[in-house]
Design a protein around this nucleic acid. Structure first.
Length: 228
DNA sequence: CATGTCAATTAGACGG
DNA sequence: CCGTCTAATTGACATG
């Protein structure tokens, strides 16, 4: 897939009313949490920013308390890293500026946050995924609304079609002003302006194309419908 | 081939 | 206990 920098990957579907606020909210906003991936986890002491140092206050006791020690037998899992509010804030901030990082930026950010570059990388990766998911959801909502209004319009047009069909099936009897006899339907036409049935003047043309319907203001130039 | 990104998935932390 | 959030892993693919 688009492995290349998705700098332009952001779905840019102009969803009216929906500003693709990249994240801003949710996401890591309120500190992250995180975890050691699957149980496999090769001894990567997460939490340990390269130099075993301690650092930010980790809200939860998740502070890297040397997992090693308690490794006593049990299937103990390494504690899951939980980013501090400050770490999350800085990550969000740089994400706003750029959704991808150059190796240099990654390194610098990692140092600044006292995290491993890999962790910064993973954070951005997950953040991009969250953003994309959110946009997809918004897009989905938008399309649902579109579907709804189109369905509504379709219903309306179907009704119009029915009405017009009814008019053609049983045209009103119009008497000839001269003979006082009912005129044949083929001699009638619909005035596109006032939408009234009027008698055609002149020689009755045998085959009259149903152009009158197409000319009716009721018909929007949507697409040529096969029917009528 | 090394590197980077992404999609899919796993699993810990946490709140209700 | 279950659902949600999200850190982290894995595998596939793209690119230079």
């Amino acid at each position: 897939m688009g492995a290349t920098s998705p700098s332009g990957l952001e779905l840019t579907m102009a969803v009216p009313g929906l500003s693709s606020s990249s994240g801003s909210e949710g996401a890591g906003c309120h500190n992250g949490n995180g975890g050691c991936g699957g149980g496999n986890m090769r001894d990567l002491d997460i939490n340990q920013p390269a130099s075993g140092g301690e650092e930010e206050e980790f809200p939860m006791g998740s502070v890297e308390e040397d997992e090693e020690e308690r490794g006593v037998g049990g299937p103990h899992r390494p504690k899951k890293l939980r980013l501090s509010k400050e770490q999350s804030r800085l990550l969000e901030e740089s994400f706003r500026l750029n959704h991808t990082l150059t190796p240099k930026q990654k390194e610098a950010l990692a140092i600044k946050l006292k995290l491993r570059p890999r962790q910064v990388e993973v954070w951005f990766q997950n953040r991009r995924a969250r953003t994309k998911l959110k946009q997809t959801e918004m897009e989905c909502e938008y399309l649902k609304r579109c579907f709804g209004s189109l369905t509504e319009e379709n219903r309306r047009l179907q009704r119009e079609v029915e009405e017009l069909r009814a008019m053609r099936v049983a045209p009103p009897t119009v008497l000839s002003p001269h003979t006082r006899q009912p005129l044949p339907a083929s001699a009638l036409t619909m005035c596109p302006r006032c939408e009234r049935i009027t008698a055609t003047t002149g020689p009755p043309t045998a085959s009259r194309p149903p152009s009158s319907a197409a000319a009716s203001p009721l018909f929007r130039p949507r697409r040529p419908s096969a029917a009528f």
